[in-house]
Every structure is written in C-alpha cells, then in structure tokens.
Design a protein around this nucleic acid. Sequence first.
DNA 1: TTTTGTTGATTGATCAGTCAATCAAAAATA
DNA 2: TATTTTTGATTGACTGATCAATCAACAAAA
Lengths: 195, 195
Amino acid sequence: MPKVGMEPVRRKALLDAALRVIGDHGSLAVTMSDIARQAGVSPALAHHYFGSKEQLLIETIRSLLRQLRRDTVAALKAARTPRERLSAVIRVSFHADQFAPDTIAAWLAFYAEAQRSEETRRFLVIYAGRLRSNLLVDLKALLPTDAAERAAEGAAAMIDGLYIRQSLKSAPIGIAASIALTEDYLNALLSTPAP
Amino acid sequence: MPKVGMEPVRRKALLDAALRVIGDHGSLAVTMSDIARQAGVSPALAHHYFGSKEQLLIETIRSLLRQLRRDTVAALKAARTPRERLSAVIRVSFHADQFAPDTIAAWLAFYAEAQRSEETRRFLVIYAGRLRSNLLVDLKALLPTDAAERAAEGAAAMIDGLYIRQSLKSAPIGIAASIALTEDYLNALLSTPAP
DNA sequence: TTTTGTTGATTGATCAGTCAATCAAAAATA
DNA sequence: TATTTTTGATTGACTGATCAATCAACAAAA
C-alpha cells in the first residue's frame, strides 16, 4: 500500500474525521478508534501522526478556526461600506457550514473543553476577540466609541447565543431568522441615538 | 454511624457535590469517586442512592433548574409593571449564584451533554422555553405580538450568549455590564417603533 | 431480629498509548 | 535493466490505567 507523501493526506483525513465524529457524537469523549475508523485507518496511525489524542483535538479546533477566518476574510473583501461589512460578519457567522448541526455540536464541545484545557481556551478567546473586533472596527465608524463597544459586545453575545440555542434543536430558529434578529439589533442601536 | 433518615441528607449532599465537582472540573467526565469523595461518602453509596451515574447527573441538572425557577418566581413576585418584570427576569439570569464560574461551567457541560442525552436535552429545552415565555408574556404588553416574539428570542439569545462568553474568563464582562447590555437591547426595541 | 446505612473488594469493559513486525515504493547499486 | 537496500506507511497485538457497577458483609438503630 504505502506510497510516499501520504502524511498530509492522512492528517487532513484524520482532522476531518475528528470533526465529523465529534459533531456526530456531540462531545470530545470520542475514542481514537472512532476517529481512525471514520478516516479509514488504524488507531495506531492516528497516534503516529498526532502523538496524542489531545494534540489531535487541538489541531481540530485550530482547523475549525482557520476555516472561519478564511470565510470571514472573503466576505469582508466583498463589502464596501461599514454597514455592509457588519452584515458580512453576521452572515458569515450564520453561514450554512458554520450552522450545520455537527459543527455547532463541535463548537459546543470545545467550549466545554475550554474549561479544562488552557490551550483550547486560548483558541476560543482568539475567536471571541476576532468576532468582537471585526464588529467593533465598523461600528466605530457609525457610533461613538463607547456605544460602539457596547454594541460590539451585545452583537457578539447575541450571535453566540443564537448559536448555542440552535444546538438544542427544538424551536429551530433558522439561519435567516438568526441573521434578521442580529440585524434588527444593530439597526435599533444605530437608529436610536440619531432620529 | 448509621442513623435512620439519612437518605434525603445523602441525596442532597451528593447532588451538591456533583454540581461542585462538575463545575470545578468543567465537564461531566467526572468520576463517581470524585463526587462521592466530595460528598464524604463511598462511591458505592452514590450508586446505592442513584442507581447509575447518568441518573445522578440528570438529577443534578434537575436541581439546577429547580433552583433557577425558585429564584425567578421570587423575583417576579416583587415586580409590578411589565417593564419591571422584564428587568426581574434579566436580573435573575445574571444573579450571582447563576453567574458563578462553577455554575456556568456546569451549565455548559450540560449543554454539551444534551447532544447525546435525550433527557438532558429535554431539561434544557424546558429552560429555554421558560426564559422565552417569561420574556414574551410581558413583552406582549409593550409591543405588537410579532415584534414581541422577535424581542423575546433576541433577548433570550443575548442572555445565553453573555453567559457562554463569561465561561471563557477572558474579558470578563461582569454582572452589571451584562444586565446593562440586555436592558439596552430591550430599551432600543421598545423605543424604536414609537419615537 | 429485622431494617437501614455503609463500605471494601472485585469485576468487566473501555481506552490511550506503545511496539515490533510487515509491506511496498523509491533509491542506490551492480 | 535487474538487484538489493533503504525508508516511509501501516497495523495487530499488547499493556497499564481508569472507572462504572456489583456484591457480600458489617454496623447501628429500631
């Protein structure tokens, strides 16, 4: 079987498999065997390439974050005005890929894990900071600084909250409605001070 | 040692211990031994009274929910106008007990668990429904029905979002600021349609 | 003596992680 | 070109640790 140059292929397959299995299972309490089986290799190979389960998990969240950033950068590039850019940030947050049940479950699992793993928390703090900062930079063009800061906190919280509520699967709010709610929030804040 | 009537004492001690250990550890992946040790009894006793780890965990979240409802009912009783009642609901959500790091970590762990455990999800759906409904009933007195419904969804999401962001412990938003953000949101929605 | 409370010891299952061995492609050599 | 050697890829089998769950036994109250 062995062909040279399999390493990147296997790494990617294992990362994808990990995300899939975690999302499916809704928890980080998945076995290396589960992940390896999903990737179509032996458990030993997963250890061979990642050293430990913890490392594989950390690489998994890192890849999740990387994907989110890619999407965000792309969406921002297409937007012109500050208001458009705000909408772009919101849209990316609720993009179908991000809003898929498996992905939501995986994020949730990582939030829980962050209570224990310093490194996992670091990554989530980075995510939270980016979201806040992406919103803040454009809000500052539309509101006084302190109002902009509060608006950024509020919008970020609402996005995360809509996200987490989605994970319960009852009363599915839906992508469009989630976007609309967040937009309404910003519209209300943007129109209130200056009628 | 054995005195009659220990059962309720032990049950409560074990439930408190479970909450404590889960919050401390930031995950449901705690052992019966950990919980039993925290409660000052043997692991075997925990099984004796709860039958299984899963059952103990379910009783734990049930007690968390019971406490929240008690607080909410008490807070609502003291409020007079719809607007006051809305503030009461918000205040309870961010009450010090609920906002304690251990409690937040425990809620988070249960959210993750809900992906797997049908019964855990049921409880969280009940929580989400109550929060939404508590907000909705008073919002309907202040807004048209459809606007009230959207406001209730949005406020509930923001509350949950502020909650989950708190779990990251970086950029601690704080109780007062969290309440203020949520109040601002409602104020903006309540003032926008009628300037 | 019966009942209630309690535990230590044990079991069976599950898993992360290790390791020696195997296999096939690629590179070196003849 | 034909061969041998080297190297990367891969796995099955195993180990050590952990843990939920069980159970037989014991202690104290009723």
